[in-house]
Each structure stands twice: as C-alpha cells, then as structure tokens.
Design a protein around this nucleic acid. Structure first.
Length: 299
DNA sequence: AATTGTCCCAACCGCCCCCTT
DNA sequence: TAAGGGGGCGGTTGGGACAAT
C-alpha cells in the first residue's frame, strides 16, 4: 500500500463513519506515521481524517506523543530519573507535563504511571497517604538519599562493558528514511517491510543490535522535523535495549520484547543497558529499610 | 490445568485555556 | 465580546500479562 492510498484526502462521508477506540493496530500506526511525515505533527483532526483513520484528532495526538514519537524513551525509569521525578514532584506536585519536560524522552503519561504504580504503592505499603507530610518527609529524607546512594554504588553495574547507553545512538547512514520497529519507510513513505530489510539498509554498528521492541527506531530526517534536522546524516535510534549481542534481531510483535528483555537480563547478570536503565522496583527490602533504616544495610 | 488476583500501561474522558473568527 | 474549535493536561479506566492459588 503506498502513502497516497494511506494518506488520502478526507471525504465528507468519512465524517459519518463510526470512530474507533481502544488499542491501535499496526496499520493505523503506519497510516498515522505516513501522514505526519507528510504534514507534520499538528492539526490533529485534519491528520486523522486525511490518514483515513477512524480516530479522533486527540487520539492521534496521544498516540503520537506517547508512543510513536521518535524521542519517546522506553524502558524502566532509571534511578537518576526517579530522583528527578521525586525532586520535581516536591516542587510542582502533579504537574506531570511540566515534570516530563525535565526528563527528555519521558512522557507525562509515563511519569504519571510511574507515580501511581510505584510511589503510591510505596505509600500504601507504608500505610501513608501519598500526599501526607509524613510520606513526603519519608521520601525526602529517607528514600531520596537511598536512591542517590544506589546511583553511586551501582553505577558500574548499570553500564556493563560494551554497552551503548546513549538514548540516541546513531548507527549507519540512511537519509530521508523513516524507520520504525515494524521496518523502514522510505522517502515515499512506503514500508520496506521486514527488519531484515531494514538491516540491509542500515546495518547496526559492530557489536550492537537493538532489542525486540516495536518502536526501536523511528523517524530520521524528514524535512518537517526541524528540531532534529541536524541529525540528518543518520537514523535516530530511540531504542533502549541496545545490547551487546551480535545478532540483529528485531520483531514486529508488541509482546515479543519481553522475551528479549529477559534474554538481555540473563546475558548481563540482571542488568541491561540503554539510557542507564535498570530494573528498580520497590521491594520488601526497600520497605523494611524505610521502616527500619538504621537496622538495614545498604549492601 | 484452571481460576483468581494483581500489576502495569496504553488509551480515554472531561475540563480548561487559547486562538481565531 | 462571544462562540466555537483545537489542543494541552490531569485523572481514570480497561485489559493484557504475569503470579499466586
């Protein structure tokens, strides 16, 4: 299917079509990416119509900003990011978009989710109200210093040998190409299809591959993409799972990446790189430490 | 193996602000 | 100046994945 087919002129009859809701499909993502590559990320209602998507403009905007945007950083929130989120939340409260501005590649939605799933969970486990002074003091005087200490003690482990930890590692040269986890789109916005084909166009640097993530690589040097135009010499790799393995394995599935993460974890003693990511959960030890900091060793 | 519970995150909803007409 | 539409933001929810029983 070519871009003209996928990105047609909206007709009046389309306005009558019932809107779709729920999870986005591969086809819808491609249509949206195609149209954004042509018209740029604005005028979302028009984009939705011209892409032939039975979605609201708002839905398209959200999909792009939270998921398809090339700068969206994937992977777990790092220790450094956790510290920043806590500090900024002290300052600004639930102003997620403002907090997100200070964490490049992270969306307000992601930060909001982190806060709800991790921080509020911690508050619940400590039997505190998340907005209480008691809990805030706990975060400020106990949790933050602990996170900072972990950053210092664990930093060598977060960046294993041969890892690329940059969130935007540039590999190869491929002008005027939009690449997604699904494959590559050429300057005519046609999908070259397979990751194998993508690899031919833009082979990864020696010793690198990217993880099995559905948005591993997205968008390079489209002319509307002014903010990263200076990057036009190469693709922008947003993937957070750059591994040390030699294979070039990416896939299409939304779920396969979990298997890849497991493999990377196994290969790297429980850590994988990419933006210094680490698995950092609030576990029982953390709770015990917060309840009895003096009695619990950091080691 | 089947069922239930929990976690997590993508997506939706409603409100609000700003800009254009 | 008011109305209407577009877009931004924070709160909430639905459902998939995984764990526990």
């Amino acid at each position: 299917m070519d871009s003209k087919e996928r990105c047609g002129v909206p007709g009046k009859e389309e306005e009558m079509i019932e809107l779709r809701k729920g999870a986005w499909t591969f086809e819808e993502d491609m249509k949206l990416i195609d149209c954004i590559s042509i018209h740029g990320p604005a005028h979302w209602n028009y984009l939705a119509r011209s892409a032939g998507l039975r979605r609201t403009g708002k839905s398209c905007r959200l999909r792009w900003l939270n998921y398809l945007h090339p700068n969206v950083k994937r992977g777990n929130i790092t220790l450094e990011e956790q510290i920043l989120i806590l500090e900024l939340h002290f300052r600004w409260g639930n102003r997620w978009s403002k907090i997100a501005q200070e964490l490049p590649g992270r969306t307000d939605n992601e930060i909001k989710n982190y806060w709800r799933t991790r921080v509020q969970k911690l508050a619940k486990q400590l039997n505190c109200d998340v907005n209480s002074t008691q809990f805030r003091d706990t975060l400020r005087h106990l949790w933050l210093p602990r996170l900072r200490e972990r950053v210092q003690t664990q930093s060598p482990k977060v960046q294993p040998t041969n890892y690329t930890t940059s969130s935007t590692a540039r590999i190869g040269t491929c002008n005027n190409t939009i690449s997604t986890g699904y494959g590559l789109l050429d300057s005519n916005c046609t999908n070259s299809g397979t990751p194998e084909e993508a690899a031919k166009v833009s082979p990864p640097a020696s010793g690198l591959s990217y993880g099995d993530h559905h948005h591993d690589v997205l968008v390079s040097s489209s002319n509307w993409w002014g903010s990263i135009e200076e990057e036009a010499e190469g693709l922008i790799y947003t993937d957070q799972l750059l591994s040390k393995s030699t294979g070039f394995s990416i896939g299409y599935s939304y779920s396969h990446h979990l298997l890849e993460e497991d493999r990377l974890l196994e290969e790297n003693n429980g850590w994988f790189g990419g933006g210094g990511d680490s698995f950092e959960y609030v576990n029982d030890d953390d709770i015990n430490w917060l309840l009895h900091p003096a009695a619990t060793s950091l080691s």
